[in-house]
Amino acid sequence: MDWSRAKSALIVAFLVLDLFLGWQVRNRVVGMEPGSDLTVADVRSVQAKIEAGGVRVECPLPRSRPSLSYLVVRPGTAVLRDTQARLLGAEDSPGGLATLLDNGVLIYTREVGSHAGAMPKNDAIGAARAFVERFAGRPMDLEFDYAVALGEAWLINFCSKFDGKPVFDSYARVLVRGAEVAEARFSWFEPVGYSQQRRSVVASTDAVMAAVAELGGGARGQSVAGVSLGYHSEPYDAKQWESVPVWRVLFGSGQAVYVNAHTGEVERPERPGR
């Protein structure tokens, strides 16, 4: 037998087998790498499909698919207590009631006088920003997120960021009625660090489709006002927990749907063993 020839044949056979296996392994591993970006054509195609269902898309849909880990957060109750103290005790306290709920949300309300209609949007944002900077301040470091018109009032939402990504559950929502802040709601979760391996996120277009499907018939006539990638989790009465990467699909009515950016499923609250 010609061993040399047989060896060469085996080398060729194993080379082919290894190439095949390598491709399979690569396909498995690729899920941990950033996904390939959407093309303009991909986005347009999905946008057309959504609009055919009676939903307007009024914002650009992100085309990138970065890979993200989970974000570990813990309740920022102490920070909220400071905010509560400032709201109630500061020299320039606006008065009113500030209540810290068990779920870690601080609610502020105050009586405001009569008013002659809503302020212009930018003025309302300015008033809300001044209020938030005065009473929330650092470490919440909130940034303007979105504004929703509610008749004679504006609901202005600010959101905290970690490593440039919004943490949707760390927010301040301020209701500006007339020219005054009438209500505010603060929530703050302190980021601890990342956990889990990084995984590429699903396409923003898939998330929008899932969000529209979640609203069902209620989506018709609505508009998609914003699609952004960040972190979200239900608040827990716990020491700390993992917040997952989500696509937040914001509709024109102010309704937000959170779509798990790893699984593509809409996030719904649930809890075992209770």
Partner: peptide
């Protein structure tokens, strides 16, 4: 494990969902 989220309860219990 990468699609499971962990919650550390105050009483020391750990929840995976």
């Amino acid at each position: 494990r990468s699609v499971v989220r962990r919650i550390d309860e105050r009483d020391g219990a750990v929840i995976y969902m």
